[in-house]
Write a protein that binds this DNA or RNA. Sequence first.
DNA 1: GGGGAATGTAAAGCGTTCTTTACATCTGGC
DNA 2: GCCAGATGTAAAGAACGCTTTACATTCCCC
Lengths: 65, 65
Amino acid sequence: MKNCLQELRRQKGWSQADLASHLNVSRQTVNALERGRYDPSLPLAFAIARLFGRAVEQVFDPDPE
Amino acid sequence: MKNCLQELRRQKGWSQADLASHLNVSRQTVNALERGRYDPSLPLAFAIARLFGRAVEQVFDPDPE
DNA sequence: GGGGAATGTAAAGCGTTCTTTACATCTGGC
DNA sequence: GCCAGATGTAAAGAACGCTTTACATTCCCC
């Protein structure tokens, strides 16, 4: 599933490790999400959306595959 | 995580099996979600939200635990 | 061109999400 | 009371989400 995580992270000037610590997940998890290796769990998706002040639908896009 | 799946399903007059077939998951999965035994995957959460014409945030509520 | 930070990737392991099969209970109509 | 549909639950197994450790690569900056 597509997402704009990398763009949102860079807007904050954060490294993947920075974002990981804000989300309480590992850096590898952030990397995997940005690279679309898998989708986050629903709780993590909510945490990401909240961190960036967006709706889940504005971060993750299920439609374009 | 809280959700209002059962209420939305009943508004449609659907059984758990009906909802399951609309979502292409098993009836046990619908039952488990309604009873809060686990959270859906992100793609399934999107499918549920879309089916009921709602945002993910209007079906699943992360805050009140 | 050397060095450190950032990023990409891999493997093993654990818990979660979802499946199938199967059975128990509850409900409502007849 | 009986029966059928709806719901709850269990167990075993496959696939996924996330962890830790570890190493390779890329990117700057000097």
